[in-house]
Computed example of a mutant assay.
Amino acid sequence: MYFKQSTQDFYAKLSRTDDFDVLSDPRRYVPLPDDWLVGVADIVGSTHEIARGRYKIVNMVGAAVISAQLNSVGHAPLPYVFGGDGAGFAVWPSQRSAAELALAAVRRWARAEYGIELRVAMISVADIRDAGRDVRVARYAPSDGVDYAMFSGGGLAWAEEQMKTGLTHLPEQEGATGTPDLSGLSCRWSNVTSERGAILSVVLKPQDGVSEEAFAQVAEAVIGASGADPRGHHPVPLKGPDAHFPPPGMTIEARVRQNGPLVARLAGLAVSNALIWALMRSGRKLGNFDPMAYRAEVAANADFRKFDDGLKMTLDCDATTQAHLETILRKAKADGLVLYGLHAQAEAMMTCLVPSPNESTHMHFVDGAAGGYALAAAQM
């Protein structure tokens, strides 16, 4: 039974869980109301951008889609998911116009700043259900400070397929101007080197016609294989990532900001990052900012595994764990249950949304640093 009408606090009222393992169960998900809208975005030619060594920029553009949507609602609770070279989200009916404007602005910005083309589309949940798919959500809280949406029902993946084939898209508006509000979007942390052997990007989705229950059994086995480690093979150390100066993404981040000439933006970032680096090195507090506590929160808040009509994980794996995962996935594929891709690399990277450095609500999207989710998905 679906809700025909809703209010914007529908998602905000959903209960949260801190147990990722239970989210393979489709009964944990709640249908979005019919009158909500799903938005999707995807970078055209992301594999080519990766070959050019621009995957950090690719991640930045994908995260910008989420940043613009969160800023457009004043950081009200909003279901979204980061996919490496794209993103998906959902909004309530009265937010549709603002969401479309934010999507269009990110598309213009990505083209102007990085020469990247972004496909974008929005489609109603009712239309998705008319096509035989569904959109259901759950809220996963890896820490007290943040939570991330999980999606099931096949609707998000279907909307992305429609967008990629050109059947639905957000048309360009001739003469449209305006830049997206990307406040809080940053990429200042250094890449995280694997401590166990390899950073493994894992992507799997059900084959056509496979029931959610059957896919859940495979997902449970995959999560179980990684769950042998107390932290689930978390790629970010418990104490948090390292900070170096200058940070590797400073020039990329400077292009996110729209306040003044690029050289002035770079100068401002250099000063603020030098201060942050000094605090991280010394461990000293500055006012309410505790650098050691903040680093630990980065690890706790990191989004390194998710359900979005499939399962995606970024894991720090030893050879034995990787071989175990491959055995599970090869058998599941041979049984006609899943399609999957794996991509191993030496490092993980993070793209961050930081509403305030003095609060624990900062979000960190983790991906493999050398192609990650995008190259794993390409194997499917």
Rank of each mutant, 00 (worst) to 15 (best):
V135A: 03
D290M: 09
Q345R: 06
A126C: 05
A216S: 12
H343N: 07
Y80K: 00
P31N: 13
F151T: 03
S282I: 12
G268K: 13
G39W: 06
Q69Y: 01
A225V: 14
A302L: 09
S194P: 01
Q69L: 14
A141I: 10
V91R: 01
S67R: 11
Q258L: 07
D181K: 01
A323W: 02
G84I: 06
T47Q: 08
A221R: 11
T17C: 06
S211T: 13
G372H: 04
P142H: 08
E160H: 04
Q345S: 05
V338M: 06
H234W: 12
P237D: 08
V38W: 08
V106N: 07
D367Y: 04
A319Y: 00
S15W: 08
G153I: 04
R265E: 12
R133N: 13
A121P: 00
E359T: 15
V61R: 03
T327Y: 01
I252K: 07
G224E: 11
L311A: 06
E174T: 13
G166N: 04
D130I: 07
T321C: 15
G227V: 09
A378L: 05
P291C: 09
P171K: 03
G166R: 12
P247H: 08
L315N: 11
G86W: 08
D309S: 02
G184V: 01
A274W: 14
D242R: 14
D335R: 04
L275T: 14
F20C: 05
P93E: 07
A110V: 05
R188L: 04
N71V: 12
D25L: 11
V146S: 02
Y80N: 07
R27Y: 00
F307R: 01
T314I: 15
G53M: 00
D309C: 12
V192M: 04
P171E: 06
P77I: 12
L238V: 15
Q95M: 06
I57T: 15
D134I: 02
I66F: 03
E220A: 11
V222F: 08
A221F: 00
D34N: 04
D335N: 09
V203G: 01
M122W: 10
G88E: 02
A278V: 15
A332N: 03
L78C: 11
R133T: 09
V354S: 01
A51V: 07
L101P: 00
M60E: 11
G227N: 13
V38T: 14
N259Y: 03
G310L: 03
S360Y: 00
M380A: 13
P261H: 03
H364P: 03
V135K: 02
H364E: 14
G240I: 12
E172Y: 05
M1E: 15
D309E: 11
S272W: 01
A302K: 06
L342V: 06
R188M: 04
T7R: 09
G153L: 04
H75G: 00
Y294F: 12
E100W: 05
A102P: 08
G368F: 00
D242Q: 15
G209S: 09
M363L: 15
A243L: 09
V256T: 15
I43H: 03
P93K: 05
Q345L: 02
Y340V: 03
Y373D: 04
P79E: 11
V218P: 07
L375R: 10
D318Q: 12
H48F: 00
D229W: 00
G310N: 02
S143P: 01
S72T: 05
R139V: 02
R139G: 10
A104T: 07
G287A: 12
M292D: 14
D308P: 10
R139S: 11
K312C: 08
G132Y: 02
